[in-house]
Design a binder for these strands. Structure first.
Lengths: 154, 154
DNA sequence: TATTGTTATACTCTATAACTATA
DNA sequence: TATAGTTATAGAGTATAACAATA
């Protein structure tokens, strides 16, 4: 949550000279990312789940993947999925069922309660982030989308 | 790292109608935050430290705080600091010394090696994030800073 | 043999509660 | 009493390596 994170301190590579110089683009991106992640984490913990759990549920909104695919989506090792899914399952938020096509595989899906939590969480995130961008006009928001789209991977 | 995170799926509150509609501002912010955090985490783990450790070092660049102040900066409980600092200390990256003014307190500071790692890490982050914004013109970057400044807390 | 998933193990990170020692 | 910090404990999250079952 703190804002004085890593890059900068008026002495980075490339060198900002003036003492009271405006924060550069890199700083801006870092601070914005912490702000947004703080919102995401806050919503997750308001529902007693971690951000990774919430991301897991988000993936399951329109998919019923196996552990391997899930691990890939989350950027985790497959062995990490076992516990993650097991904890969510124990709380009745997801369910694990044997794959009909592959005797080795399981298919993970949201329970009704898990889906409810997911939708509520998504709505809260959307609402809180919309509030964050409230200072921007519609034109400025459009501009922000355009600029960000040039940065995000295709 | 996955991009299909929480908000949206063409069915959020406020409702995007068209099927192939452009991603909205909220989505954009979430994706951007994950992209940036991925860069930060990647740089940290390239040096075998966590992002929290790297943030800790960043704070210590121009301060010699006590555990309590450190915990406040990182948004952690003071009891969490003990292990965090102890692990960094064991690796020779920070040092803990008794406060001269308060018999109960300790002052945490970077070792020369810790400072080296911090500067290298900050430079790598700046470099990688600059690369990320390379598709933007100087004017566009300035615009991005302006827009973001309206979102970030004063 | 290759793949899917789990288990065993070990570590980091985090919080709560209880404690020590100063103030 | 109040504050700074640590310790004890518990749990989540993560990875590596070894394993079982199936393909």
């Amino acid at each position: 949550m703190s804002t004085d994170d890593l890059p900068n301190r008026n002495a980075g590579p490339g060198g900002r000279e003036a003492a009271g110089a405006a924060p550069d683009t890199v700083d801006t991106l870092v601070q914005l990312s912490f702000l947004v992640q703080g919102v995401l984490t806050g919503v997750a913990s308001a529902h007693d789940v971690s951000l990774v759990q919430l991301r897991l549920f988000g993936i399951l909104r329109d998919r019923t993947p196996g552990m391997r695919e899930l691990a890939h989506h989350l950027g985790l090792d497959k062995s990490s999925m076992t516990g993650l899914v097991a904890r969510a399952e124990k709380r009745g938020l997801v369910q694990r069922r044997p794959s009909p096509h592959d005797g080795r595989g399981v298919l993970v899906s949201l329970t009704p309660e898990g889906r409810r939590l997911t939708e509520v969480g998504a709505a809260e995130i959307a609402q809180r982030l919309a509030a964050l961008t409230a200072p921007l006009s519609a034109e400025e928001r459009a501009l922000l989308r355009t600029l960000t789209a040039k940065i995000l991977p295709a």
